[in-house]
Write a protein that binds this DNA or RNA. Structure first.
Length: 420
RNA sequence: GUGGUUGUAGCUCAGUUGGCAGAGCGCUUGGUUGUGGUCCAAGUGGUCAUGGGUUCAAGUCCCAUCAUCCACCCCA
């Protein structure tokens, strides 16, 4: 293993032997997005750093510790995108989407970068897909989006997962609630674990996520829930989301302690968690973010969105054994026997390909036996051995690789044979 | 970033109290002239993660580094 250059920590190669799984999922995603009439957007891999500090939140770990940032030649700080909503919103504003139409339904798919310590379902370069709806401040749009996510996981065949929902209220009330939360927990601050003491000032909502038993007990007994501190307007909104989900037969659980890692969420939030993923179990997370477009310099625009991790999805699907083996894609393998027939063989390959059949041939000048082994390994439906006899007679034997039976066909009739 | 786990052939893994580097699978070539899958035979393939140390002798013991996986943290 000397002198070999290895891939960067937390990155991985998707090898030819397993790429079909990704393509299968990607194709399914595309078709579901178009069913829901979402259009794709593709934005650059890197952005100005301040885009993320302003959207994701200056005090989050993502911005503080995990961004891949660098100075370009103009000495401006740029960052490999750690999430995609910020980029989509930037693009929405930059291209004046709101003037083209008052509503936009957009989806995206692509690699993101965060400098975290890798573990199962968590990489430094990872792929997310997601969707956003801009321009609706009504529960129908929350539900459209949740339904979309729900349908994706259902249609992919995954069984072991649960949809959780909650509401965070609007910015104003959340601030008030955070003050109340701090006040009620202050007497117990010393009893909290080291992490939670830290989070108490930094992001107190995260205390709800702590797995420490003592912390859980304190939170259960003394922490007020956000739902009890919302306006009737906010509560009604949440009730309507729930009732619409019920009408669509979408199963969910309300988790009154669920919070989000990113700062920009308001009102409805949701998360889909897998039951067989280990500690990185969130397949998908999202919610409403009515202030973000304005915060990033656009005109006030309500929005909902979600983001979902591909790697975790693939791991979960593999655990539920949802991938069949790669399907048979090669129609025919051509085995030329020697230099006298090779030229003609290449022409035949081209002719068959021109008729849209997938063809491969021997490129190593090997023995007939080895070439047949190769045809078998490549899962060809048919094989043809071409030698001098065939060139003289103008006929070849087409062998069916499943049955082993051969059929004699004129060389210029091979395409007719295949089309039968 | 903190704790722990593992690192031997392309892959999955054995390797005894320290004593010649192994198996299965894969790959290559054969098993009478030009036919795969099953079977049989032979062959290919390793600086035992890397660098030090202890020892007559290290895959095995010790230290460090790197990578990996798992949990925390964070998050999709």
């Amino acid at each position: 293993m000397k002198n070999k250059i290895k891939s960067v920590k937390g990155t991985y190669d998707l090898l030819p032997s397993e790429i079909y799984k990704w393509q299968e999922v990607e194709n399914k995603l595309r078709s579901i997005f178009s069913l829901y009439n979402f259009l794709e957007i593709r934005t650059p891999i890197f952005e100005k750093s301040k885009l993320f500090s302003r959207s994701v939140g200056e005090f989050t770990d993502i911005v503080n510790k995990e961004m891949y940032s660098f100075l370009d030649k103009g000495k401006e700080s740029l960052t490999l995108r750690p999430e995609l909503t910020a980029s989509v919103v930037r693009s929405y504003i930059e291209h004046n989407f709101q003037q083209i139409s008052s509503i936009h339904k957009i989806w995206y798919y692509g690699p993101l970068f965060r400098q975290e310590k890798p573990q199962s379902g968590r990489y430094r370069q990872f792929v997310q897909f997601g969707a956003e709806i801009f321009g609706s401040a009504y529960p129908e749009s929350d539900v459209e989006l949740i339904d979309l996510a729900y349908t994706i996981y259902t249609q992919l065949g995954l069984k072991k997962w649960t949809l959780y929902i909650n509401t965070l209220g609007k910015k104003k009330n959340r601030k008030k609630y955070i003050d109340i939360l701090k006040e009620s927990l202050l007497p117990y601050k010393d009893k909290l674990c080291k992490n939670c003491k830290n989070r108490f000032d930094k992001n107190i909502l995260r205390l709800f996520d702590c797995k420490n038993r003592q912390c859980k007990k304190i939170m259960n007994e003394h922490a007020p829930l956000i739902i009890d501190h919302l306006s009737t307007e906010e509560k009604d909104y949440f009730e309507e989301v729930k009732s619409l989900l019920d009408k669509l037969n979408i199963k969910y659980e309300v988790d009154p302690t669920m919070v989000r890692g990113l700062d920009y969420y308001t009102n409805t939030i949701f998360e889909i968690r897998s039951e067989n993923l280990g500690s990185q179990d969130a397949l998908c997370g999202g919610g409403r973010y009515d202030n973000l477009v304005e915060d990033l310099g656009g005109s006030s625009t309500p929005a909902v969105g979600f983001a979902a991790g591909m790697e975790r999805l693939l791991i979960a699907m593999e655990k539920e054994k949802l991938f069949k083996n790669e399907s048979n894609k090669l129609d025919i393998f051509i085995a030329p026997m020697n230099e006298n027939v090779r030229e003609r063989a290449i022409q035949i390959v081209k002719e068959i390909r021109n008729n849209r059949y997938s063809v491969d041939m021997d490129f190593q000048r090997r023995s007939v036996k080895a070439m047949m082994r190769e045809a078998n390994r490549k899962n060809a439906k048919y094989s043809i051995v071409i030698g001098e006899n065939e060139l003289q007679s103008g006929e070849v034997n087409i062998k069916n690789m499943d049955s082993g039976k051969e059929k004699t066909v004129k060389i210029d009739r091979i395409n007719d044979f295949l089309s039968k």
